[in-house]
Amino acid sequence: MSTATGTRRVTTAKAMAEGIGLEMQRDPNVFVMGEDVGAYGGIFGSTTDLFGEFGADRVIDTPISETGFIGAGIGAAVEGLRPVVELMFVDFYGVCMDQISNHMAKIHYESGGNVKVPMVLMTATGAGYSDAAQHSQSLWGTFAHLPGMKVVVPSNPYDAKGLMISAIQDDNPVLYMFHKGAQGLVWMEKNPRSIGEVPEESYTVPIGKAAVAREGTDVTIVTLSLSVQHSLDVAEELEGEGISVEIVDLRSLVPLDTETVLESVGKTGRVLVVDEDYKSFGLTGEIAAIIAENDPGMLKKPFRRVAMPDVPIPYARPLEYGVLPTRDKIKAAVKDLMA
């Protein structure tokens, strides 16, 4: 084992960019492209400082042409390069979903396993700053529903770096979905958990492995992304009220670590799923189904979920926070489970 180079506190955005930069140093086939990933450093900081280190040849600003450059990423990956491509907001999927779903995710399968697509598609998700219906969605359930791409959703700086390195090293297409509100941006309200201890050296966080972000005995919260940070806040508050909350941070949706979920639910017998994505036909229902298929008797109380109601995300602050999975809603749901 090499000498530890130590940790320092960095933002999630910086941790992501560090992960990309370390892989670019290690493997000349890795390059980045997307809108404003160059001198700007990514609108949400995902490519911070990479342009200065690697230059325009490996950190490539693209035209506003998502079908074109995501497709180009696929073609480059098919030829053995390892592109990291950014779709600025996941909400822009509508202009490039054919490349993502019909090509990036299907080529390996359609080819009978003969063609690999080692590509990372990173994209910003999430609400909370009044960007309204077309710039605030989570949508991970939509992508996780479509076979052929891995889907990772980090909640903190440590996982952001380790999952990025794993994603780049993976031989499959990986959709890397980061929450704007968890990036630690100076220009957006953030949870202090968006800045954290991160090793300077390279390391991986395995894709398909959930983390128990906090151990507890009374209630399991299964969640991901920024909602992990909110849930940790709630768990700390509830500790003072004598409620012990365990938090499972899924980190990956595809593959999904059902074992860790079932182990925790089996221990507590009470489960709340918190999801910033739309409620119906999505992650919350999937977790309920997994529990029901395994053993419905493991629940002492009926399954609960806090998710985005099935409405487009509204603009005005009272409306937006009316639908978001806030700390208050999470706390109320946990207390209800303990009532």
């Binding site: 180009a72 696929i74 480059a76 030829e79 053995g80 490349q99």
Partner: peptide, 22 residues
């Protein structure tokens, strides 16, 4: 390769060309 979705093979070809160029 081929694709059943018309015109969607063009971006992929651009990426292959990009790889050849790089």
């Amino acid at each position: 390769s081929c694709s059943g979705i018309i015109a969607q093979g063009l971006p992929v070809a651009c990426g292959q060309a990009m790889a050849f160029q790089r």
